[in-house]
């Protein structure tokens, strides 16, 4: 494995191509996790930071997975219905009136993590997915 320091300095100061070595570490999770019994293995639980989300591919769909302060896990479709962009996993997690929510990073509407319903307009909702932890690995079921 190439360390970051190896690729950072270019002897002549020139730039290399876009295919330059990615400075990120090699992935630790399987690249395309197999689905078992309709559940998709996502990543080890410790990869999820409390109060933040990540995005996973589940059956070809982008799914936002959140871990909250009290260690609950939630999964919502990642597409923000207000903007049409696949971004919900990158919103800020919190609670409003006791309901755990994520705020869309684009126009700041709040989606309830348990139901997917938008607090600002309850006619709008995103799909929710079942989440479980098996042997320390987060798995997502079908919507």
């Amino acid at each position: 494995m190439t360390t970051y320091a190896d690729v950072r300095h270019h002897p002549d100061g020139s730039t290399d191509g876009a295919e330059a070595k990615d400075p990120r570490p090699e992935p630790t999770a399987p690249v395309t996790p197999p689905a078992t019994d309709g559940w998709t293995r996502i990543c080890p639980l410790e990869r999820l930071t409390p109060e933040r989300g990540v995005c996973a591919l589940v059956g070809g769909e982008p799914v936002a997975v959140f871990r909250t302060r009290d260690d609950e896990l939630y999964a919502l479709h990642n597409l923000d219905p207000f903007s049409g962009a696949s971004v919900l996993s990158r919103g800020i997690v919190g609670d409003l009136g006791g309901t755990p929510v994520v705020a869309s990073p684009l126009y700041k509407q709040h989606f309830a993590l348990d139901s997917g319903v938008a607090l600002e307009d309850d006619s709008v909702a995103v799909a929710t997915y079942p989440v479980r932890v098996v042997d320390g690995v987060v798995e997502i079921g079908s919507a």
């Binding site: 999770a29 990540v54 982008p62």
Partner: peptide
Amino acid sequence: LARFTSFVNAPGTPDPTI
């Protein structure tokens, strides 16, 4: 650096919605 990943279970896969 690990945060800069579109899909946690499929690093390197570009986001097909873009």
